[in-house]
Amino acid sequence: MEKLRGNKTTIAIFILPAVCCYLSVAAFPLLCSAVLSFFNWDVAGLNDFVGLKNYMQLFTTDKIFQKAVVHTFAATLLCLAIQIPCAVFLAYLLTRLKRGRNFFKVAFFVPNMISTSAIGILWIFILHPEFGLVNALLRAVGLGQFAHVWLGESDTALVCVILAASWQYIGYHMIIYLCAMQNISSSILEAARIDGATSWQAFRKITFPLIAPILKIDTVLVATGSLRIFDMVFVMTGGGPNHASEVIASHMYTRSFKGMQFGYGSAMSVILMLLCIAVTVFLNMAFKRAEDKVE
């Protein structure tokens, strides 16, 4: 085994298939997309090189794109604010649970196993203005004046979509935190209890610092996942009403596939990718600074 590891050629040969696979399905299309974004490509095929025109248009005249960027960031912040605290809280509750932990673990994870389109349709019905669960509940308790056309009003559409998406993913993130918390040695927590620490103190001073590395990874996962959000928007509102829930990915889809402006769509995908990278780098830096501070 030692001998095998030492042999660079052997390593290279064994890694080669995976690298080829990765390059052909991930890196190569990315590169193609980047190249395409400098062209005008429609149904007639590749037309002509237009340089930075697609990018210029995105940032100068395309008001919908600018709106979509704002919505995308709002969606990301909202996802971070909802999903991470909820997931940590649920995971913490589960670790305290003596019985039925597995049941709840599965129950919270189930939404993650259902396809997004099914969840989208489910939430469309829950939020339906006439026979939807939410409005029916509000009316039943005499709060009828707070009933809304949740997905049809520009103030509520995006928030509702994000809530539905969060409902889907909270279980997934909860599992990640649960694993992290279960890895904490019980002797540390026991020692703290003997020393007279309250549950809150134990959580703040022991559990939380010990799951911090996972928190960092998960924050990046949530952030990049929500920057790319598309499926839930597409199923629930299609970006409407009047672009109120338009995000970068849905705008990209509309322009590329409905408007047949593939070059323009590629430019958006490149920007989306750069955004994802930038956010990841930013988050990593922010966490690093926080870690340094603690140390």
């Binding site: 919908i64 009003e153 409407g240 009403p241 009047n242 509309t254 322009r255 409905k258 408007g259």
Partner: peptide, 20 residues
């Protein structure tokens, strides 16, 4: 108008109905 501009016309009227 074709897909992109046509879609925007639809959105414009939808927005006006909703109060724009």
């Amino acid at each position: 108008l074709g897909s992109v501009v046509g879609n925007e016309y639809n959105n414009t009227v939808q927005g006006i109905m909703a109060g724009d």
